[in-house]
Design a protein around this nucleic acid. Sequence first.
DNA 1: ATATCACGGATATTAGATATCCGGATTATC
DNA 2: GATAATCCGGATATCTAATATCCGTGATAT
Lengths: 162, 162
Amino acid sequence: MRLSEGVEWGLHCAVLVALLPPDRALPAGRLADYHGVPPAYLAKHLQALSRAQILDSVPGPRGGYRLARPATDVTVLDVVEAIDGTEPAFRCTEIRRQGPTRLATREYRVPCSIHVVMASAEDAWRAELRRTSIADLVGMVGASAPPASLAKGLDWFQEVLP
Amino acid sequence: MRLSEGVEWGLHCAVLVALLPPDRALPAGRLADYHGVPPAYLAKHLQALSRAQILDSVPGPRGGYRLARPATDVTVLDVVEAIDGTEPAFRCTEIRRQGPTRLATREYRVPCSIHVVMASAEDAWRAELRRTSIADLVGMVGASAPPASLAKGLDWFQEVLP
DNA sequence: ATATCACGGATATTAGATATCCGGATTATC
DNA sequence: GATAATCCGGATATCTAATATCCGTGATAT
Ligand code: FES
Ligand code: FES
């Protein structure tokens, strides 16, 4: 069971754009530079975040991406689902209805308890991801990077923002 | 993010062998018949369950698979991890160390908070799966199949057990 | 007018999941 | 002891999803 590699990228990008000066945007190319990932592929994930209304996209010079909402209103789950999708990890194929002991369809109103357990585990996973917002991540001591790196990051904004 | 299809198979097989008469075993071929899945591929998953000491394998005539431990001691998580592996779904590539603001390695003693959040969500998922045992699944009303199907299942044992 | 940027479709590449087959080892039964 | 049933693991084939790139189009600040 693996999440898309883009989830790590998307979360780090969300934290970075949350630190932007007000009303500025960061182009996809700069975000790729900053994180050392393939620009064309990162662009795809950023478009997904834009479609999910997590990021705002601004075309043209001085354009790029910025947060579409206050960082307090964007949860980690929002970002994960925007990139990885909302399909459940456990795929129930109703295997219980196969084979020699199969019954009529109406007998299967009660959901399979295996299915129920797997679904509740995924609910717990999602609940945990919903507990943390991008703002929380930015506010954490050390956040996604040591304080010294954050300082460097702010310097870097001066360099790359036209 | 998807779990192997074999997880559903493995859990249903575990429930079925938990219902076997004492000291009997069910061959892989019968388990495949019962669930309507490809025999050769199910066999692979059963071997994984055997390696994980969740099932006992008995070679020869009247052989097959049975639970290696009391059903109360086998959790859903045990089965899931035996089949799907224990690799975390979220793969942190330490992306924070890339790019223009990279610092010396010693600066990264504090773990990335994004990584921490993702890991705790997976812990919550595992904790939920650990709460339910195969015995619990068997004992649930309806279990993985309606009661009428369980009755048919017991009849079916008479047919297929030599 | 021009340069910068997002967007989405088409496409290539790679890795992993799914699936099958077979030869060798084990053991109950006759 | 011969036979048949069964598990085991390796080799291999196939299919699907993830990863990755490219390019034409449209928007917009300067
Ligand atoms: S039938 Fe799908 S999990 Fe039981
Ligand atoms: S560096 Fe991997 S999640 Fe932050």
